Computed example of a mutant assay.
Amino acid sequence: MSKAIGMVEYKTVSTGLLAADTMLKTAQVEILEAQTVCPGKYIILLKGELSAVKASIEAARLKYREHLIDSFILGNPHDSIFAAIYGAASIESIKALGVLETFSAASIIVAADEAAKSAEVTLIELRIARGMCGKSYMLLTGEIAAVEAAIDKAKAAVSESAMLLDSAIIANPDRKLCESII
């Protein structure tokens, strides 16, 4: 039994809804989120067995490729991704702060998974294309060396698809900045 998540991101709401219907009819998957994000794009995030997620995502990719912006399939995603997506991460202090921005919603989740699996860091937040003209970002914390390693790994993961926008690492961020983040 292998857990997996996947996402498709479309240019239009109508294509997004068609794709969601196609994915649900293709395999036994569950929609975690299906919604409009800025600027009028539509994302569908789903979960299920790896083979079911692959089949559903591939069906949507192929059938509606002319409006596809980005997509991913992750087998065994890092558990901290879900709390970061929903803004429920439990953070006591921020030692170093890592920030990574992408051009798509799907690519930020892939970047976060790579970061969380590559170093001892805690994901603080994944802001997925809401209020950002379709861009997305993640915030993470840990010791400076771990944050540097995680951001490097995340950058490499999204650079291949040309979705990397920018990144920053702040060692010992100001207390007031930390309070505004957590």
Rank of each mutant, 00 (worst) to 15 (best):
I85T: 09
V147E: 03
I69T: 09
H78N: 12
C38I: 02
E101V: 12
K153C: 10
H67V: 03
R130H: 15
S56Y: 02
A105D: 15
I109N: 04
I128K: 01
A19F: 01
K41E: 10
G48H: 02
A4E: 00
G48V: 05
A60F: 01
L140P: 01
V53W: 01
A83F: 04
L100P: 00
L139E: 03
V147A: 05
S136H: 00
S90G: 14
C178W: 03
K153M: 07
L45T: 02
R127S: 11
S2P: 13
A4T: 05
L45A: 02
E49H: 12
A105I: 04
T102I: 12
R127A: 12
P173N: 05
I44G: 06
D79S: 08
E125Y: 07
L46R: 04
K47D: 13
L32H: 04
I170N: 01
A146I: 07
I181A: 10
E120D: 11
S80P: 06
G134N: 10
Y86T: 07
A157Y: 07
A119M: 09
S167M: 10
A34I: 07
K117C: 12
L100S: 01
I69H: 03
A89M: 08
K176L: 15
M163A: 15
S71C: 08
P173R: 03
I69R: 02
S71N: 11
S56F: 05
A60D: 03
A162D: 11
G142M: 06
K25R: 13
K155H: 04
A146P: 04
S93Y: 09
L165E: 14
Q35I: 07
Y64I: 06
R127M: 01
I124L: 14
K3G: 11
K176T: 15
S161F: 01
A149N: 10
